[in-house]
């Protein structure tokens, strides 16, 4: 198991390396530069600026320097947030984004799975139709429509929760953003759980448990559900991708000082180093999450584990 995890971790390094190089080349081969202002700079000043940021060096030297910096955890200076390095911006944004993302994922599992189970137990009855109807809605209505609506209803009309802002340790700030971010994932998890629960409830081992007189609650939650969870676990990777993407919008709408908002601002300002740094951090997070999902999957289902015969 540990060997498998280590092997997968080593396998992730080339992937990240390719993403770093591709991102770097894309950004550097682009026409125009970070110092293209509306008022063109005098050539001497421009040359000095480029020398200060190392932009006058050949591309390979720049790449080598950037990678060396990355290995030391140095993402370079931000071109537009002049007083901050990209590393500092990441350090302030990462905890916010991680909290938001993990709460959203947690909600997705803690709400999505029970909803799916209830739906499967009430197969083709009104509860099932209601839950699945809501799920279709949750999947089809994009986050950037849900988020403003949620802010309007719960933040302004009902005045239950703050509409924007972030104070560390204040749980009320995170309820609205995390719920809107998690909504499509909750919906999808509910649908997946329902589908595989329906199958698992009909399978022989559940009927055998029934015949042995295992009580209903125990049968459902301890026999049928664990067997039905495999598709949900393998969906967690794509779910993390959806949450990361959605967090760009959610952080912007709710004014959370996370990575997503920096990335969007960086993109609007064409702040190359900031965008590159953020994308690399996102890629690293994605790769790590997929790795964790795969390991969890191998742990749950021994057939996937390498080295076991079946």
């Amino acid at each position: 198991m540990v060997g498998y995890a280590l092997k997968r971790l080593l396998g992730a390094i080339p992937t990240l390396a390719v993403i770093v190089v591709v991102t770097f080349l894309l950004v550097r081969l682009a026409p125009g530069g970070p110092f293209d202002e509306e008022q063109p700079l005098p050539p001497e000043i421009r040359a000095n600026l480029e020398a200060a940021y190392g932009l006058d060096q050949p591309l390979t030297v720049q790449l080598a320097r950037y990678v060396r910096g990355l290995l030391r955890g140095d993402f370079g200076p931000s071109f537009k947030f002049k007083d901050f390095s990209v590393t500092e911006l990441i350090a302030t944004g990462l905890p916010v984004s991680l909290t938001l993302g993990s709460v959203a994922m947690l909600l997705a599992v803690l709400l999505g799975v029970p909803l799916g189970v209830v739906s499967a137990l009430r197969h083709n009855r009104p509860t099932d139709h209601l839950v699945m109807g809501l799920a279709v809605l949750g999947i089809a209505v994009p986050v950037f429509v849900v988020a403003p609506l949620a802010a309007l209803v719960f933040g302004i009309y009902l005045d239950w929760l703050p509409v924007a802002g972030w104070t560390p340790g204040e749980w009320r700030d995170i309820v609205l953003p995390a719920t809107t971010l998690g909504l499509p994932v909750i919906a999808y998890v509910a649908r997946l759980t329902r589908g595989s629960m329906l199958e698992s409830l009909r399978s022989p081992f559940v009927r055998a448990a029934c015949a042995r007189g295992v009580p209903r609650t125990r049968r459902i939650w301890l026999h049928a559900l664990p067997a039905a969870l495999a598709p949900v676990v393998s969906y967690l990777g794509p779910a993390a991708a959806a949450v990361l993407t959605g967090s760009l919008v959610v952080e912007t709408i709710f004014g959370l000082p996370g990575l997503g908002r920096y990335l969007v601002q960086g993109a609007l300002n064409r702040d190359y180093t900031l965008v590159m740094g953020m994308v690399i951090v996102y890629a690293a997070m994605m790769i790590l999450l997929n790795l964790l999902v795969d390991i969890a999957y191998a742990w749950l289902d021994p057939r996937v584990r390498p080295g076991t015969r079946h």
Binding site: L26, V27, A30, T245, G266, V275, V279, A283, M286, N290
Partner: peptide, 21 residues
């Protein structure tokens, strides 16, 4: 393809929109 899959594609689009006009 697998490598590019590692990142949600919206991020690549964002890089491209930063890079080009």
């Amino acid at each position: 393809v697998d490598v590019l899959y590692a990142l949600p594609n919206i991020f690549f689009v964002i890089i491209l929109t930063v890079v080009f006009e």
